[in-house]
């Protein structure tokens, strides 16, 4: 589904990704771990098409397409979803109107008829239940005045409504207490399917107790320096990132 080869990216004149190789197949969950500043969020942003980052080398193939040629909205319509580390507050736009616009723009891109008000409400009710999203929040301005937990839940709720093929969760666990973490993880797990894939970007192993990955990759200085099964996350938790840093230094 997703093939990243030799991906390099920079912001301003600072190179952040130094050649990432990663392949994700349908049905898989990949965890990207790494110390702060290793490039995890940059990778997530580049996949979603954030324009501040300049891709200076490598390729990203998604469902056989050149993903880098697509605008952020085209990527979304093709099924790429980024759950933001810091969801943006947008005063004046209600969550419900925003989502209706998003759903129908994506349907338009795919050549489908727009959902009418009743169909859309049915969809929203069903998905809100799935992630325990409070109805009252939907009528409020997008993320405005939401708590950290509410914002993250809103991300997962949007993901449930948009049903992406490739979901990228960027530090979704940061700032969540254990209850919120469980609710968010439950939501993600309910959305797992054989034809869908998930990339979980996280600093801590904690989230991976709830969203169990098939593979764990460790990113350091803009490169994947170690990959392994889910147990690698536990090893990291025990030994800390110093271990990886030393190992990376040895290789160099």
């Amino acid at each position: 589904m997703l093939k990243i080869k030799g991906l390099q990216a920079s912001i301003g004149d600072k190179q952040i990704l130094n050649g990432i190789d990663l392949e994700v197949k349908p049905g898989e969950v990949h965890a990207i771990m790494g110390p702060n500043g290793s490039g995890k969020s940059t990778l997530a942003s580049v996949l979603a098409g954030r324009e501040e980052f300049e891709v200076t080398g490598g390729t990203i193939e998604y469902k056989g397409m050149d993903l880098l040629e697509k605008s952020p909205e085209e990527r979304a319509a093709e099924g790429v979803f980024l759950a933001f580390q810091y969801p943006v507050e947008i005063p004046g736009v209600t969550t419900i109107n925003f989502l209706k616009t998003a759903v129908n723009e994506i349907r338009k891109y795919r050549g489908e008829n727009p959902l009418d008000a009743a169909q859309f409400l049915r969809l929203v009710k069903e998905k809100a239940k799935l992630v325990n999203m409070n109805d009252a929040l939907l009528k409020r301005a997008l993320n405005e005045g939401f708590s950290g937990g509410e914002k993250k839940r809103n991300e997962i709720f949007q993901m449930a409504v948009l049903e992406p093929t490739l979901a990228i969760l960027d530090e979704t666990d940061s700032g969540l207490d254990i209850d919120a973490l469980r609710i968010v993880s439950d939501g993600v797990n309910k959305l797992r399917a054989p034809d869908k894939a998930t990339i979980v970007v996280t600093h801590y192993q904690r989230l991976l107790e709830y969203i169990v990955p098939d593979y764990v990759h460790v990113l350091y200085k803009g490169r994947i320096v170690k990959s392994g099964p889910k147990e690698l996350a536990l090893e990291l938790e025990e030994k800390g990132y110093e271990w990886i840093k030393n190992e990376a230094a040895d290789i160099a």
Partner: peptide, 25 residues
């Protein structure tokens, strides 16, 4: 707000619509 614009686009809303939505808001 560029960040807000990217957020809307990342949900499938084309740039032109996203701009109009933000300005209207």
């Amino acid at each position: 707000d560029e960040e807000a614009l990217f957020y809307l686009r990342s949900r499938g809303i084309p740039k032109h619509e996203a701009l109009a939505l933000l300005m209207f808001a």
